[in-house]
Design a protein around this nucleic acid. Structure first.
Lengths: 206, 206
DNA sequence: CCTACCGATCGGTAGG
DNA sequence: CCTACCGATCGGTAGG
């Protein structure tokens, strides 16, 4: 992506890419609050100082805009949650960094509406379409990453041998999402402490 | 409500109330899929065979329609989840009926979009306004009901004496919501079995 | 409860 | 990337 962007010598593709990035930064934040359906081309244009036609020219259609927004959110999520975990080489230690990073990512409101994927998966979870499929894939990938991280700790003997990776990863992601949702609704940080307590117990008393 | 509805002898209020109920039944189901913002007056009119003006006449404004829809969803929730639990007089037994009823309520798709409150609280959780406040109140009430049910089992010595009711009720509702959300996204019933397993362990191994 | 209508905003196109 | 425009739909009002 960076290569093709810099390959063009007249600077047009380069400018297009930087516009895209600027618009995407606003789009992911708007969508975390108003949803991917609530993300309107006109509102996005106003917020970025562009014309509506300009936004359409960049993305082609609302559906393409929605898919691009999901991709941009995945990048942010990777940076804030997966990268810190992957830099920890231990087994159980990596799992702890992973859940800590997720809670920090949600609690610090990297996106105004809390976790982007919690917001849009609840919005589109029960509707058909390409956009919903893209979200489902992202969520499946995330769930699989947590499970593999659990398995890694398990292989190193740092979790009880009878641990079911699918079961434990379901419980962990439920507690993370529960903290995110409740915190947004109550405007309180307390749910994050509850999630930490619960996850600590899950990873310790086994 | 029933009294004032039957008090009018010319039948107009009576008819108005029955129209309201018919519209509400469609509204709660639509909103569970498309959200309370996605619930449009025009679409609701088409789906109920009424004119748009007729729907407006019944509810006054979109905000009033949204608030009425929340009230109607609360009634359905009470009937499917709270009533079965309250008919069980035991402590821990009531808590088990409560979580079982919730999982059945979500899994059987009483609402097409799964749990109504999971859908709309994620939609409006990070936005200000009267409608969001009504949802927050409903969710606080539900959380408090779970906590009181936990306390009841605790008073009867059916849970470990060092149990923190706030902590345990947070973990239970997170697992319930996690099952609802993941089931909708994956189109699978497996998350419900995972939630049952996790809650069984929480209520047993103490 | 209806029809008829209002201004605003939606996603998208044409042409440059 | 822009302006100018399209038909459709939005929430809501008027008048009955």
């Amino acid at each position: 992506m960076t290569i093709s962007a810099t390959a063009n010598s007249d600077g047009r593709r380069l400018r297009g890419d930087s516009s895209r990035r600027a618009v995407m930064a606003v789009a992911v934040d708007l969508a975390s609050v108003d949803g991917l359906d609530g993300l309107s081309i006109g509102a996005l244009a106003t917020r970025t100082g562009m014309s509506k036609g300009g936004v359409v020219a960049l993305f082609g259609s609302k559906e393409h805009l929605q898919l691009a927004t999901i991709d941009a959110a995945i990048e942010v999520f990777h940076e804030h949650v997966l990268v810190p975990a992957l830099s920890e080489k231990g087994g159980l230690a990596r799992l702890r960094v992973l859940t800590d990073s997720w809670l920090r990512y949600s609690q610090s409101r990297v996106f105004s509406g809390g976790c982007f994927f919690a917001a849009v998966s609840a919005e589109l979870g029960s509707r058909p379409g390409t956009v919903r499929d893209a979200i489902a894939t992202a969520m499946t990938d995330w769930q699989a990453f947590v499970r593999r991280t659990v398995e890694r700790a398990l292989e190193r003997g740092e979790l009880a041998a009878d641990t079911d990776p699918d079961q434990l990863s379901f419980e962990i992601t439920s507690l993370l999402d529960g903290a995110n949702d409740l915190s947004l609704l109550l405007g309180s940080d307390e749910p994050y402490a509850r999630a930490r307590t619960a996850i600590d117990r899950l990873l310790m008393a086994r």
